[in-house]
Write a protein that binds this DNA or RNA. Structure first.
Lengths: 161, 161
DNA sequence: TGCGATTTAATCGCGGGCGATGTAATTTCG
DNA sequence: CGAAATTACATCGCCCGCGATTAAATCGCA
């Protein structure tokens, strides 16, 4: 062998600097922190805000459907929805046609937050500091990344050597 | 009725589909789930894995410095490091020169996990499903995004109308 | 019709993530 | 030198995220 391949493969580079998983993780924390402070006057957390955005688009959905929208399972969503119900933002009602289901409806108070939340959304989008076109492209790529990772998780491959 | 412009401004689009914050959040959850299952045999969580990657690069650092590396504050890091110490992956020692500081050192057991973790890292990087060049560009952009958001958080602007 | 399988939520326990607060060591400076 | 300010870490309480388990309603089918 002529070529020196003894180096430990910078192929998949090692430091955190070069890792997409860390960059995604850290950017997620940063989003969370920015939103935390902006949403604080509304009394919402970032995951709650995500949930409200989904419900503003369409409410009257089951817990499970909502969970798919916001990428959370019922073991996370149920307690969160209960807290939000206690805040008066939404109501949870058993589906009379199928008593297993719980349907989630926004209250007036819940709908009334949308304008303020929209303002914050625009603000944070600006804080992201990307021109609109690049921002959209980046969003698309992150969606593709998420889909690829979910597909991989479903394949359940053990990553053997 | 000529043109229907009554729609509410797709300016900064509304749905979760179009939001970078949600795409980042959801991709972060997806990474977390993939890593969770891959790391389970090693007994590591994803944040613990991140911490180990940092320590494999350089240990003997203070809790605070390590926190900067991994984007966590001491109120998150301290309990996590204690758990990892209990697992035998690292040691926490008071700096004799400055008793306020706690220095973190890897143990033999901690170092011994690196090869397996590297294998998993390569595996997940492949699962991300991007060609190397695009993956690097995406990583760079996410780092820039994070920096912009942190800068914005530091400016502490209230997002007034 | 009746009974097992499936679907849908809820619950529990543990590990992050962080604002607020506490505590001890060190530095600053009058 | 000594008190105040600063630094570095720890603690507490709350919220999310999820694997595992449970409970109840519905469905499928003999």
């Amino acid at each position: 062998m002529k070529h020196d391949i003894s180096k430990p493969e910078p192929d998949t580079a090692r430091g955190l600097d070069t890792q997409l998983c860390f960059a995604t993780y850290a950017a997620g924390l940063a989003f969370n922190r920015v939103y935390r402070h902006q949403l604080e006057p509304l009394g919402l957390t970032f995951p709650q805000y995500i949930t409200m955005v989904s419900l503003w688009t369409k409410d009257g959905v089951t817990t499970g459907t909502l969970g798919e929208e916001v990428a959370l399972e019922t073991n996370t969503l149920t307690p969160m929805l209960k807290r939000m119900e206690a805040m008066g933002l939404l109501e949870r009602r058993r589906d009379t046609a199928d008593e297993r289901r719980v349907l989630v409806y926004l209250t007036k108070a819940g709908r009334s937050l949308q304008p303020k939340a929209d303002e914050i959304m625009r603000c944070v989008a600006e804080a992201a500091g990307f021109p609109m076109e690049e921002l959209m492209r980046l969003t698309t790529q992150m969606q593709r990344l998420r889909q690829n990772l979910m597909d991989y998780a479903d394949r359940n491959a053990p990553c053997g050597p």
